[in-house]
Deep mutational scan, measured.
Amino acid sequence: SKTSNTIRVFLPNKQRTVVNVRNGMSLHDCLMKALKVRG
């Protein structure tokens, strides 16, 4: 089974995003990807 960790990230202006960290990806990469999608 694939394991994925879901991390809630609290952003300024009362924004919130959820990042799924996959195996083999660093938290930083996942964060940058999530913020790019939002931006």
Rank of each mutant, 00 (worst) to 15 (best):
G24V: 06
K33I: 00
L27P: 00
L31V: 05
G24A: 14
T6L: 14
T6R: 05
H28Q: 14
S1G: 09
P12M: 10
V9G: 00
R22N: 10
M32V: 08
V19E: 10
D29R: 10
M25L: 15
M32S: 10
S1R: 13
K36Q: 07
L11Q: 00
Q15P: 02
S26G: 03
K2V: 09
R22F: 07
L31M: 05
N13D: 08
N5H: 08
T17R: 10
R16H: 15
N20E: 10
S26H: 10
A34S: 10
A34E: 06
K2E: 04
S1A: 10
F10S: 05
T3S: 06
M32A: 11
R38P: 03
T17I: 01
L35M: 14
I7S: 02
G39C: 10
L27V: 09
S4D: 10
G39V: 04
N13Y: 14
S4G: 12
V21A: 13
V18E: 07
A34V: 02
S26D: 06
T6K: 02
N13S: 05
T6P: 02
V21I: 10
K33G: 05
G39R: 04
S4N: 12
V9E: 00
L11R: 02
N13C: 12
A34P: 14
N5D: 05
L11V: 02
F10C: 03
V18I: 07
G39D: 12
V19G: 02
N20D: 03
R16C: 01
V21M: 03
K14M: 08
V9L: 04
D29V: 07
L31A: 10
C30W: 02
R8H: 01
K2N: 06
V21G: 06
T3N: 08
N5T: 14
T17A: 03
C30S: 14
V21F: 10
K33R: 05
L31R: 01
R38Y: 10
R22D: 06
K14E: 09
N13K: 04
A34T: 02
G39E: 05
M25I: 15
T6S: 05
M32K: 13
K33L: 10
K2Q: 08
V37L: 12
N23D: 13
K14N: 09
N5S: 15
V9A: 15
N5K: 08
D29Y: 06
N5Y: 06
R38H: 01
L27Q: 00
K2R: 11
P12Q: 03
K36R: 13
G24C: 13
K14Q: 09
L27R: 02
I7T: 02
K2M: 13
K33M: 10
H28L: 13
V18F: 04
N23Y: 09
V18G: 01
V37G: 01
T6M: 13
R16G: 02
Q15K: 06
M25E: 07
C30G: 07
M32R: 09
S1N: 13
T3I: 15
R22G: 06
K36D: 10
R8C: 02
V18T: 07
A34G: 12
L31Q: 00
C30R: 01
N5I: 03
F10H: 08
N5G: 10
V21E: 01
H28N: 13
I7P: 07
R22L: 05
R8P: 01
V37M: 06
K36E: 04
M32L: 13
R22S: 04
K14R: 08
K14S: 10
N13G: 07
N20S: 08
T3P: 15
P12A: 03
T6V: 12
G24D: 11
K33T: 03
D29A: 08
Q15E: 05
L35R: 01
K36S: 10
P12T: 04
K36N: 12
K14I: 06
N13I: 03
F10Y: 12
H28P: 02
K33E: 01
M25K: 15
D29G: 09
L31P: 00
P12R: 03
N23K: 13
R38Q: 10
G24S: 15
V9K: 10
S26T: 11
G39A: 06
S26N: 08
C30F: 07
R8S: 03
T17P: 01
K36T: 08
D29N: 11
N23T: 12
L27M: 05
K2G: 12
R38C: 00
K36M: 12
I7D: 10
S1C: 15
F10V: 03
P12S: 00
V37W: 14
V37A: 04
N20H: 06
S1P: 15
N13H: 11
N23S: 13
G24Y: 10
S26R: 07
T17S: 15
S1T: 14
V21S: 10
I7F: 06
N20K: 15
R16S: 04
K33D: 07
V19F: 08
L11P: 00
S4C: 12
Q15R: 01
R38G: 02
R22P: 12
R38S: 04
I7M: 06
H28D: 08
S1L: 14
S4T: 15
V18A: 03
I7N: 01
H28Y: 09
S1H: 13
T17F: 10
I7L: 13
G24R: 14
R38L: 04
L31T: 10
F10I: 00
K33N: 01
S4R: 15
N5V: 10
M25T: 15
N23C: 12
V21L: 05
F10L: 03
P12L: 02
R22H: 08
R16L: 03
M25V: 15
L35A: 10
K36I: 05
T6A: 05
S26I: 07
C30Y: 00
R8L: 05
V18D: 00
V19I: 14
K14W: 10
T3A: 14
D29E: 09
L35V: 04
V37E: 00
R22C: 04
S26C: 08
K2T: 07
L11M: 04
V19D: 00
F10T: 10
L27K: 07
F10P: 10
K33Q: 04
V19L: 14
R16P: 02
N23H: 12
V9M: 01
Q15H: 01
S4V: 10
H28S: 07
N20Y: 07
M32I: 12
M25R: 15
L35P: 00
V19T: 08
C30I: 15
V19A: 09
N20I: 14
G39S: 11
H28C: 14
S1I: 14
N20T: 06
Q15L: 00
V9T: 10
L35Q: 00
V18L: 02
I7V: 06
H28R: 12
M32T: 13
K14T: 04
R8G: 03
N13T: 07
N23I: 09
S1Q: 13
S4I: 13
D29H: 06
T17N: 04
